[in-house]
Each structure stands twice: as structure tokens, then as C-alpha cells.
Design a binder for these strands. Sequence first.
DNA 1: TAGGCCATCTGGTCCT
DNA 2: AGGACCAGATGGCCTA
Length: 334
Amino acid sequence: MLTLPFEEPHVMCEPRFGANYPREGLPESLEEQRKHDADSSNSDMREAEDDISDREEDERDGDQDDNGLPKKRGPRKKRSGKPETDRSKVRRHEANSRERSRMHGLNDALESLRKVVPCYSKTQKLSKIETLRLAKNYIWALSETLSAGKRPDLLAFVQTLCKGLSQPTTNLVAGCLQLNARNFLTDHNGEVMFSGKSPYDAMYSYPGSDVNTPPGHSGSTLDSSAKPFRHYSYSGAYEPYYENPSPEGGSPHFDGQLSPPMNFNGIFSLKHEEPPDYSKGSHYGMRYCSAPGRTALAHNSMYRVSPEGRFPYDLHVRSQSFQAQGEVNGSFHN
DNA sequence: TAGGCCATCTGGTCCT
DNA sequence: AGGACCAGATGGCCTA
């Protein structure tokens, strides 16, 4: 389960940032190199940094550690005998450019990861480390849910999600969850409990709503007024969102949450927006769930496995949204 | 102002 | 030899 490798062709195979840097036909001199850099973006900053770097290197030439030995790493130029030639400077600049490009690719991949874990927001980005932690927890939580073969417990799910996260990130996730106070009571021990209903019902049901009725058709709507983030994953209101296959272009005017692929109540919309990576082929979940022998998924469907099937959940065509699902998904937008 | 986060530079190491 | 990868060092920016 969840072992198939992800593919990130748009991220890893597209040297978006490094393309501007000269790889061939290098300038004869460093001055030409810098002149070339000046034509590309951020050139001023880099040039300034180069100057600073050169200056600092000169100042740090005598740096030694506690044992009087030169430090092994760091932006300290080792002038071992022969002076640095223009050629070596150019090569160093090349290496710097490649390193920048590499790091940009890494950051792109990280950004794509941010978009598929809960609580994605363009305005309040998770840090790198928190993104990785949350992603790990998310995978773990989903795996646990699948293994359990029953409807996931929201609190357990959230607890798993928040394991090891910093307090701010935990707060963010909690905020994204919008754990509606009316659905919770706190007992005398400070433990969270639900008011009258089962935890599931408390979180997933709407008064007077049919759980099988898509939000867009039920008349009841999620209260999205309080939070600027976009609800995701199921609502009919998001159908236009689905129509755009690109997560980048899918919400050009929305500066909020885009895609936490999170559904609890047996509906695993592991991906709500179809990224370029997957739009051509299989879906996240399809990769994970379409085991050999399993009923073929209908075109344009998220998942649909009958109760008679091996998969323990009712999986639904993406457009067949559940009100309860919306409740949960909505809770991931703060 | 301290601390967190980040981008960048840099030298070392490994691999082709 | 050269590129990829890694990690230390550094400074800038932002926030509590």
C-alpha cells in the first residue's frame, strides 16, 4: 500500500530556474560571466552576493577552529597556494548556478508536496520541515485508515496528522479543521467529547441534510464566510475547479487553500485537483487502489468500489459529493 | 531583539 | 574532469 513511486515530471524534468544560467559557451572571463548574469533575473542580488562573498572570503582566510585547524566547510575560500584563476571562478559560478537550480527544483517538489497535504495555503505556507512532517503523518493516517477498513475516527486522524508537528503548525491544522465548537464538548478532564451524536455524526452530518446529497444540491451550504480559504474536494461549488486540470491555473483568483486531498467518511479523494502529473494517466488513489482484479474504475470517476467489492469504503464518483464529506473537507480550511 | 526560516555560497565527497 | 549531492556557514527577512 502506498508504495508506488510518485512521479513529478513537471518538477523534476523541467529545469525552470537553471535554464537561464549559461551551461555552454561560457564567457571568457568572470566579468563577462557577471555581465551575462546581469541579463538574467536576480542578477543584481547575485552580483552583490558575489561581491560580499569575495569580501568575506578575504576576511575569513585566517579562520581556524578550536584546534587551530581550518574549518572543513562553509563559505570560506581555501587559497591553497596558487591564486584562483578566472577559469576556476567561472567554474565556481557555474557550480553555484547549478546548485541554485537544484535547490529550486527541490523547492518546487516541496511546493507540489504542500499542495497535496492538508491545509495548503498560498498565503500561509507550511515550512519545509513541517511540510515533510505533515506529509509523513498524512500518509500514515491514510494508511491506517485503509488498514482499519472502517470509517476513520476524525480525532484519531487529526491526532495522527499532528504528531510531531510544531505548535504553530498544529494550531494551523486545527484551524484548518475548523472543529466546530458546537460539535464538541470538553469534559471535566479536558478531554474532547462530542455532544450527543457520535463523533462521526457530529462532524459529518448536517441538520436536515441527506448525507448522500451533494452539498450543491441540498440547499445547505457550508459556512465558508468565516475563513478565506477555499473548500475543496467535493462540493458542487468546486466543480469549476475540477475542470481546470492544473493546480496552478485552477484558481487564478483564489489566494487561499487549494487542495488538501482529504476526505474522511469513506470517500478518499486523495486528489481533488488534477495536477499535470496525473491528469494524463492515473490518479493518486487509482494508483493505490486499482489493484489487479479490481473493478475497473469508470472514466472520470474518483473511485467507485461497491460495498461488495474488496475495498471497505464506498468510493464515489468525484462529482457525487457528500454533504458530510464537505463538512470534513471544509474543516480543513481555516 | 532573539529566534525561525530561507536562499545562497561554498568546499568536500561520490559517481560517471 | 566534471556534475550531482550534501552539509556547513552566512546574511536577509519576518514575527513574536
